[in-house]
Computed example of a mutant assay.
Amino acid sequence: MLSYLRKFKHVAFAGILVASSAPVAAWDGTTTGKVTQIDITTPGPNYDFRVYLEGFPGLCTAGHTWAFINTGDTNYETIASALMLAYSTGKTVTIYTNDSTSGYCKIGYVVLRP
């Protein structure tokens, strides 16, 4: 019985590890850097809040050097606030993006780094 529990523990751990890494694989772009520019436009959706990172790297498979989130998107205020905080304090961020239907980099997830 004890060996069965040990095997189950290892299988359960492997399952959790695979499941927890799946969301990261779902992103078209993952880029880390410092925010160097923010553009804010009138609500559209018109790529309302745009962000650029230091060195202007491509932020998704489309290769654009800026990523966006629109005011109508879920968690817009939190993501925009976090990116403005990172810009004003010089903190490093990791931005996870997907290619939008229009071919631009849409922000889906943001991590602030120390």
Results as ranks from 00 to 15, higher is better:
residue 10 H to I: 06
residue 39 D to S: 08
residue 1 M to V: 05
residue 53 L to R: 08
residue 30 T to P: 02
residue 46 N to K: 13
residue 65 T to E: 15
residue 72 G to K: 06
residue 93 V to F: 08
residue 28 D to T: 02
residue 85 L to H: 15
residue 89 T to P: 04
residue 63 G to Q: 14
residue 62 A to R: 05
residue 23 P to C: 02
residue 109 Y to D: 05
residue 41 T to P: 05
residue 104 Y to D: 07
residue 75 N to K: 08
residue 99 D to W: 00
residue 112 L to E: 09
residue 109 Y to F: 10
residue 70 N to G: 02
residue 58 G to E: 10
residue 65 T to P: 13
residue 109 Y to V: 03
residue 13 F to D: 09
residue 41 T to W: 11
residue 79 I to V: 09
residue 79 I to L: 09
residue 15 G to A: 00
residue 66 W to L: 10
residue 100 S to C: 14
residue 31 T to H: 02
residue 2 L to I: 14
residue 42 T to M: 09
residue 2 L to D: 15
residue 20 S to G: 02
residue 60 C to S: 14
residue 48 D to H: 12
residue 84 M to E: 15
residue 71 T to K: 08
residue 113 R to H: 13
residue 76 Y to M: 05
residue 41 T to G: 12
residue 77 E to K: 13
residue 46 N to Q: 11
residue 9 K to G: 10
residue 111 V to S: 09
residue 27 W to L: 09
residue 21 S to L: 04
residue 109 Y to I: 02
residue 19 A to W: 03
residue 25 A to T: 00
residue 66 W to H: 08
residue 35 V to F: 07
residue 95 I to A: 06
residue 12 A to E: 02
residue 1 M to A: 06
residue 79 I to M: 10
residue 87 Y to M: 12
residue 59 L to Q: 05
residue 52 Y to S: 11
residue 103 G to Y: 05
residue 16 I to C: 01
residue 75 N to D: 07
residue 23 P to E: 00
residue 84 M to K: 14
residue 37 Q to Y: 13
residue 104 Y to T: 07
residue 65 T to I: 15
residue 8 F to P: 02
residue 48 D to S: 07
residue 103 G to T: 11
residue 22 A to Y: 09
residue 72 G to W: 03
residue 67 A to C: 01
residue 35 V to A: 10
residue 2 L to N: 13
residue 35 V to C: 13
residue 56 F to I: 14
residue 13 F to T: 10
residue 88 S to M: 11
residue 8 F to M: 07
residue 13 F to G: 07
residue 79 I to E: 01
residue 48 D to I: 06
residue 60 C to E: 05
residue 93 V to Q: 04
residue 90 G to Q: 12
residue 67 A to V: 01
residue 78 T to N: 12
residue 94 T to N: 04
residue 47 Y to W: 12
residue 98 N to R: 05
residue 87 Y to K: 14
residue 61 T to Y: 03
residue 71 T to R: 12
residue 34 K to S: 12
residue 87 Y to G: 09
residue 85 L to F: 14
residue 77 E to Q: 15
residue 81 S to C: 13
residue 20 S to P: 00
residue 10 H to R: 10
residue 76 Y to L: 07
residue 80 A to G: 02
residue 106 K to F: 00
residue 81 S to N: 14
residue 68 F to K: 01
residue 8 F to S: 10
residue 25 A to V: 01
residue 92 T to Q: 07
residue 1 M to F: 06
residue 69 I to Y: 02
residue 47 Y to R: 12
residue 94 T to V: 11
residue 7 K to S: 08
residue 90 G to R: 10
residue 101 T to A: 13
residue 89 T to C: 04
residue 31 T to R: 03
residue 111 V to F: 09
residue 102 S to I: 11
residue 80 A to C: 09
residue 112 L to G: 06
residue 21 S to T: 03
residue 14 A to Y: 05
residue 14 A to I: 01
residue 23 P to Y: 01
residue 94 T to L: 08
residue 24 V to M: 00
residue 52 Y to K: 11
residue 68 F to A: 08
residue 73 D to P: 04
residue 111 V to T: 10
residue 83 L to K: 08
